[in-house]
């Protein structure tokens, strides 16, 4: 009887979870990892010429690729990034470069974007354009497609982590959670975790969940099943000793 109920709960839980985890496996994120980013010359909002090499030597970088005339994902992507960054772990260990991939964008366009986002005076954020965008986007594996009917680029929200040595350590495609951002920040700081889980494979009873804010594993539901045999044994012992207590005297 108990076993049947138990199984029903298990199966119901499984169904619930299976329906909730349809996230497709994004293989794009796994490309170009540990390759060097193209050292494009940059023009920043202060009109100063600089380059990736100079910027990344100060601090590891998060590179967001956008264009200012975007009517799609760019604005929500940047707003979400700004908000997530405030709550992410080690958020001071990185700088953010927002770079336009649209040759039509000038540094003035970028400055007004920074103003709209209320980030023009934030030293952590750099808004920039470059005259060699093609080799740069190739080096990070980003491929926007021009849609002439809409007069828009068809593209993903694209955030790249670059460590101090200029290597791509991790990419995030799509608007993502603060947790994923923390993982990205850990990776550009070369914090190594010997394992990770494939997206969309979070089983209900996983034993551990990696928490990037602390860099530690937190116990998952599955761990209960490993502890269960010991708990049941202790309970059985108590029960058996209660019903079989040696008669005194």
């Amino acid at each position: 009887m108990f076993k049947n109920t138990f199984l029903t709960i298990l199966i119901a839980g499984g169904c619930f979870l299976a329906s909730g985890q349809e996230a497709p496996l994004s293989t794009g994120e796994e490309g170009n990892i540990y390759q060097k980013i193209y050292n494009a010359p940059l023009v920043t909002s202060t009109k100063q010429a600089t380059s990736f090499e100079k910027l990344r030597k100060e601090k590891p970088l998060l590179l967001g690729l956008i264009f200012t005339r975007c009517s799609g994902v760019c604005n929500p992507f940047l707003l979400q990034l700004k908000e997530n960054l405030q709550f992410a772990a080690n958020n001071n260990s990185v700088n953010v470069v927002v770079l336009s991939f649209d040759p039509r964008d000038s540094i003035t366009d970028m400055n007004s974007l920074a103003q709209r986002l209320d980030l023009e005076n934030d030293l952590q954020w750099t808004f920039a354009v470059t005259d060699s965008i093609l080799p740069l986007i190739q080096s990070v594996g980003f491929s926007p497609v021009w849609d002439s009917a809409k007069q828009q680029y068809d593209h993903d929200a694209f955030l790249v982590g670059i460590n101090k040595d200029g290597y791509i350590t991790k990419k995030l495609i799509g608007v993502r959670s603060a947790n994923d951002l923390s993982l990205l920040i850990s990776s550009v700081n070369n914090i190594f975790s010997p394992t990770y889980r494939l997206p969309g494979t979070n089983a209900l009873f996983s034993c551990f969940n990696y928490d990037p804010t602390t860099g530690k594993n937190t116990p998952g539901l599955g761990l209960l099943f490993i502890a269960l045999p010991a708990v049941v044994t202790v309970l059985l012992l108590i029960l058996l000793s209660y019903f079989n207590a040696p008669k005194v005297g």
Binding site: F192, P194, T195, Y196, R197, L198, T201
Partner: peptide, 12 residues
């Protein structure tokens, strides 16, 4: 050297 290949997980 070696590692295990486990479904659902990636070992580095």
């Amino acid at each position: 050297t070696q590692t295990q290949a486990m479904p659902g997980y990636v070992n580095r």
